[in-house]
């Protein structure tokens, strides 16, 4: 483990790219992503690990970026919401209107994406267990849970060689 004194340039693996950033030892991954790398998709909501709005994937697992020092992210594979491109998870959130103000959405998407990659067969209670790390103040949560369920279901079907119909028009 390297020690960082004052400001030091480090190399981070973010969304498939190698990115240089100048950090202090006390900088969190969240601060560095937002101010050094311009990746503002991860949001500060509490900077205390309580709300999950800053969730990113580190080696495919959801991590609250406000609770991880940037220095601890060296040699780890970091993915932010900006690294998601037309995924089933995003489509499911769109179809289920699973967000309103959108501020917590990146965090929920990353938890859902982590679930999809690590525990795609998770049952409802396990899904809830994962999602409880995050807070949404706008929705009734049912929309988010339905979106996550759908995202996982499409993953399971894909594993079985099946695909869901492409995102249809919005159900009313």
């Amino acid at each position: 483990m390297m020690e960082i004194r004052n400001r030091q340039e480090i190399l981070l693996h973010v969304n498939g790219d190698r990115r240089r950033a100048t950090v202090r030892g006390s900088d969190t991954l969240l601060q560095v992503l937002r101010t050094e790398l311009g990746l503002t998709g991860a949001k500060p909501g509490c900077e205390n690990g309580d709300c999950g709005a800053c969730t990113v994937l580190v080696d495919d697992w959801p991590v609250k970026a406000c609770l991880m020092l940037a220095g601890d992210a060296l040699d780890r594979r970091i993915e932010t919401v900006e690294g998601l491109h037309n995924t089933g998870t995003q489509r499911a959130f769109l179809e289920h209107f699973a967000f309103q103000c959108g501020y917590c959405t990146s965090g929920f998407l990353m938890v859902a994406e982590g679930l999809r990659r690590n525990r795609s067969a998770a049952h409802d209670l396990e899904q809830i267990e994962w999602l409880r790390s995050n807070i949404c103040r706008c929705t009734g949560y049912a929309e988010i849970l339905a979106a996550v369920r759908d995202a996982l279901r499409s993953e399971v079907l894909k594993g079985a060689g099946l695909t869901l119909a492409p995102a249809a028009s919005v159900p009313s």
Binding site: R34, L39, T40, G41, A42, K43, P44, T80, V81, E82, L84, H85, Q90, F93, L94, F97, F99, G102, Y103, T105, S106, L109, V170, P171, S172
Partner: peptide, 21 residues
């Protein structure tokens, strides 16, 4: 009609920008 919010796609890609962003 159940129309998607105009700003919806940007909220799913981290491109929707709020004040601190």
């Amino acid at each position: 009609q159940s129309v998607l919010r105009k700003e919806a796609p940007n909220k799913l890609t981290g491109r929707a920008r709020y004040n601190a962003d």
